[in-house]
């Protein structure tokens, strides 16, 4: 068959991509020059912003361990990025060998890399998906292969909701996940909130405007407002460094530019 002459836009290494920027910020090597330049520029206009990536990853690790401790055996990690450092499946399969993990990301390179890492892992895979199309994720055949939605599932949305525009109805999206998840399911979420250094944060927000995933800062109250079908558990939506911190990290500087928390599917939801 004859392919159209236009160039497809799926893999664009000329614009920075959030997944690859995160990878670079975490010290990974799965990124392109454009991603590194973006991250360096972000760090220049808001010194310390790359630490946010570390803190989000650390929050993800603690939340996953906490959920595994609560008996969650299957995880849907949306906006997983490039899971080379602190993989969810390594954390949970360490405790339970047959725990299931499905990574979902919009970036095809991240997905391709994840799939290769997971090629030999029967209980984990990665699929390409867009959080704005929840039914495509929930109905994805490979997702359904591993995730049994009649059993509790841990839905992870760490540092991804702030890429969803209000026009795309993030509350509705979360409600659809609540509707699909069985009782006992949990949602771990983190989200960028107004920073003390507001002008610097605004600079970074404007940098993101140049990427396919522009950034929305929401207040903690606004974030809480998105979680209609989910009941936030103690200690609530708090700065991510304050959420069940490891005692050993007590000396680490607090991270107040993002809030995070874990919520349970409401009994009525």
């Amino acid at each position: 068959m004859v392919l159209p002459e236009w160039v497809p836009d799926g893999v664009d290494i000329t614009t920075p991509n959030a997944a690859r920027v995160y990878d670079y910020a975490l010290g990974g090597f799965h990124n392109f020059e454009v991603d590194r330049r973006f991250a360096d520029e972000a760090e220049r206009v808001w010194p310390g912003v790359l630490q946010l990536a570390h803190d989000n990853r650390a929050f993800l690790g603690r939340a996953v361990r906490w959920l595994a401790g609560r008996g969650i055996r299957q995880f849907l990690d949306i906006g997983s990025g490039i899971p080379t450092l602190g993989n969810v499946h390594e954390v949970v399969q360490c405790a339970t060998a047959d725990a299931r993990v499905v990574y979902v990301d919009i970036d095809p390179v991240a997905v391709a890399h994840s799939r290769r890492i997971l090629a030999d892992n029967r209980y984990a895979t990665a699929v390409q998906g867009d959080l704005r199309q929840p039914q495509d994720i929930l109905g994805h055949l490979e997702v359904l292969d591993l995730i049994d939605f009649s059993e509790p599932v841990g839905v992870l949305m760490v540092a991804v909701l702030h890429f969803i525009d209000d026009a795309d109805d993030p509350a509705g999206i979360l409600q659809q996940f609540a509707d699909a998840a069985a009782a006992g399911s949990h949602l771990a979420v983190s989200h960028a909130v107004p920073a003390v250094n507001a002008p610097a944060q605004e600079n970074v927000r404007q940098l993101y405007q140049r990427t396919p995933t522009s950034l929305r800062i929401r207040t903690p109250a606004q974030v809480a407002g998105l979680l209609g079908g989910w009941q936030v558990l103690e200690p609530g939506l708090v700065p991510i460094s304050d959420w069940h911190p490891d005692p050993e990290d007590a000396d680490e500087p607090p991270q107040r530019s993002a809030v995070g928390g874990v919520a349970r599917r409401s009994a009525t939801g």
Partner: peptide, 15 residues
Amino acid sequence: ESISRDEREAWRTHQ
């Protein structure tokens, strides 16, 4: 090497 493979793989999937 792996990211270049991933990129090709992603490209192929996308195609």
